[in-house]
């Protein structure tokens, strides 16, 4: 009897033990079903990569065919075509076509010249596209960026380090980027009119003595108002070295950081590291959607809209004549810009 009990107890223990092991041992995860909720879809073929430098290749201005734009949206979000699958276009420009607001030294104007990630919604409306305004033709590759040249593998392809793209895939990506629209401001009255503060700011904005509208012309009630002149200007943001413009590729100077004893390469620094620029004139950006496109200026040196006009990030009175304005007047102009 005792033997039987011991035997049964041992059998029960063994059974429990095996069950417990079965519970904790990981099985292999696998897809057991796929529930289709819309049309099946496959991405465009990779195709034959272009063998000519893309900067000389122009994609025709295709109509915004839905399938083409969607293919472009896929390519914009797909990381698998990079060298190791590290990131996609959306890593910097967001899946919404906006901006992470990071600054990068992409080497497109020589090393040491950090550039603010461009807000690309509505980009097709206001060429030129690069911060320096070097790329002007609206049908040039992603015009909104001859940097797609590098993105797509011209030169060593510093950014994505991928192979060149085929013409079809480039066309799709460009169609998507060109079809991105401004979001429109959430800061206006519900009926789309300006608030009282925004109207006050508008008055200052259009004051010829202040001069904002000289380079940022537009009517806030006109959806075609771009608030940019498509020209380049020196507004006191070009970073000029002691002996003129940058002469040493790769050299980084951040005088404020150095004065403060901060290592500009250090990982603790939470403010953009400012390099030296190739030129001191930069493309006038549109003010449409400026509420969503921080930070500002070509190098992201203005973290907020107020810093673009209070002379803290520019030479005095070079980006509009604003030094005589009160704090309230400056804030009103900010509120007006947020409404565009």
């Amino acid at each position: 009897m005792r033997k039987t009990i011991v035997f049964l107890a041992m059998a029960a223990l063994m059974l429990f033990g095996f069950t417990a092991v079965g519970d904790v041992t990981a099985g292999e995860a696998k897809v057991v079903a796929t529930i289709q909720t819309g049309p099946e879809w496959t991405p465009p073929e990779r195709g034959e990569p272009l063998t000519i430098p893309e900067v000389h290749y122009r994609v025709k201005h295709s109509p915004y065919r839905s399938e083409l734009v969607r293919s472009g949206q896929f390519l914009f979000n797909d990381a698998s075509w990079g060298l190791q699958g590290e990131y996609s276009c959306a890593a910097c420009h967001y899946e919404r076509g906006q901006s992470t607001g990071l600054i990068w030294d992409l080497g497109d104007e020589g090393w040491g010249s950090w550039k603010n990630v461009k807000y690309i919604r509505g980009g097709r409306y206001l060429p030129p596209f690069r911060h320096e305004g070097f790329t002007g033709h609206p049908d040039e590759i992603v015009g909104a960026t001859s940097s797609i040249d590098r993105v797509c593998g011209r030169d060593p392809g510093f950014v994505f380090r991928s192979e060149n793209w085929s013409a079809d895939r480039l066309e799709a990506l460009i169609a998507y980027i060109r079809s991105l629209e401004y979001t429109g401001s959430p800061f206006r009255n519900a009926d789309g009119s300006l608030t009282e503060v925004q109207k006050r700011g508008m008055k200052t904005f259009y004051d010829p003595k202040v001069g904002c509208a000289n380079c940022h012309p537009g009517d806030p009630m006109d959806k075609r108002g771009m608030f940019g002149d498509g020209q380049t200007h020196d507004v006191g943001t070009g970073r000029v070295g002691k002996y003129g413009f940058r002469s040493t590729p790769g050299a980084v100077f951040n005088t404020k950081a150095l004065d403060a004893g901060v290592d500009p390469y250090g990982e603790e620094y939470d403010v953009p590291i400012i390099g030296l620029d190739l030129v001191k004139e930069f493309d006038t950006p549109t003010l449409r959607d400026s509420y969503a496109s921080a930070p500002y200026f070509h190098d992201g040196s203005a973290q907020s809209l107020i810093q673009t006009i209070d002379n803290s990030a520019t030479e005095k009175d070079k980006h509009g004549v604003t030094s005589h304005l009160t704090e309230q007047e400056l804030q009103d102009v900010v509120e007006f810009m947020k409404a565009l």
Partner: peptide
């Protein structure tokens, strides 16, 4: 799955 217009059902390791 955004671009495939479907939902994958994965049996997990649990």
């Amino acid at each position: 799955n955004y671009f495939s217009n479907n939902v994958s059902v994965i049996k997990t390791p649990l």
